[in-house]
Amino acid sequence: GQGSTGSAIASAADTATTWAQDNLSGLTNAFRDAITNGLLNPFQTLLTDSPWWVVAGVLVALAVVLGGRRSGVTTVVCLGLLVGTGLWSDAMTTLASTVVATVLVMALGIVFGVWMGRSRMVDRVLRPSLDAAQVMPPFVYLVPFLALFGATRFTAIVAAIVYAAPVAMKIVADGVRAVPEATVEAATSAGCNTWQIITKVQLPMSRSALTLATNQGLIYVLSMVVVGGLVGAGALGYDVVAGFSQGQLYGKGLAAGLAIVLLGVMFDRITQAAARRASA
């Protein structure tokens, strides 16, 4: 009957989880610690320990360089309001996780996107599973990651990557496929090898797809912040969750929600302006 199917699935899941914890935890913990200590912690310390006006200045400068003057203005407004929420340190912690996750999303997006864009067969095999990953509720795949990595910021980053990478991969794949075949053939006959064709022809010509993928990747990663707060990411996501559950933290939760929106608007403006410049 129904109950026995459910318990069979549950026991299979338990067995798999225990096996993974026993056999893979050395590997997964090493990977987690390498990313956390090598990438996340130094970056986070840089953002949270530097004076806020230095960090703000650098962010505004980046916004102007990448997106132009209007992005700079938007960034100034968003950062001003962020300082006003009183959650600067938490916002910088969230910013660090978001940027690290997005960098990893783009690395995956480019590798698999190029692979899919160059091979119809790979595309046919991968696309359905990417679609499935996109429609699957985050809480479903958080459970195995929690078992493997424990409740840490890294788990939240992995969840964000699973959520955001499929979008980035598809956009990059479509961008690479849109590069005219004639151009690729000309490069081939000029004696370019596969690596040169990818780096000198296909990626530069799908520049606008890459910036769009970054934009979408960032937004998707940021939309996982609150879910991340439930699994040990801390910072703004946790503030929002705590605001739901404890009455006296309601105000802080509201401020954190606003801070997430401000980070989102800032990122979105900068990357959209950059995407427009890339396609111009």
Results as ranks from 00 to 15, higher is better:
R153C: 01
Y163L: 07
L249G: 04
G57A: 04
A273Y: 10
G253S: 10
D33H: 07
A12I: 06
S25V: 01
T94N: 11
L82Y: 01
A275D: 09
V65E: 13
G175A: 14
F149S: 02
I35G: 03
L108G: 11
L258D: 00
A259W: 05
L82R: 02
R177E: 15
I171N: 10
A273I: 02
S206R: 02
I219G: 07
L24C: 03
Y250N: 13
Q202S: 15
G175F: 11
Y220D: 01
A164K: 03
A63Q: 05
V125K: 06
Y220A: 14
A182F: 07
V261R: 12
A132S: 13
Q248F: 14
A13S: 12
T48D: 01
A10S: 12
G232R: 10
Y250I: 12
V265G: 05
C192N: 13
F31I: 15
N29P: 00
N29W: 10
P51I: 00
I171A: 14
L130N: 01
V201G: 13
V225P: 02
A182K: 06
Y163V: 04
S208N: 07
C78G: 08
T28S: 15
T74Y: 09
K170W: 04
K170Y: 02
L203T: 09
L258I: 15
A255I: 08
V140N: 02
L222G: 02
S119F: 08
L95M: 08
M116C: 10
V100H: 03
S223E: 01
S25Y: 06
C78K: 02
A213I: 03
L126F: 15
G3N: 13
V140Q: 08
G237D: 08
R69M: 14
K252I: 11
N23R: 10
V176M: 09
V103N: 04
G229K: 06
A34T: 04
S189M: 12
V226N: 11
L66W: 12
R207V: 10
G109T: 02
M224I: 00
D49K: 03
F145T: 09
D90P: 07
V65T: 14
A101I: 10
V122K: 00
Q216W: 03
T188I: 00
I260E: 06
V83T: 14
R118A: 06
G72L: 09
R269D: 14
L108E: 01
L87S: 12
D174G: 05
V143E: 02
V226H: 13
A156P: 10
V103F: 06
L47N: 08
T94V: 05
D33S: 14
G57D: 04
P138K: 07
V73I: 14
W88C: 09
A242R: 14
W52K: 09
Q196S: 15
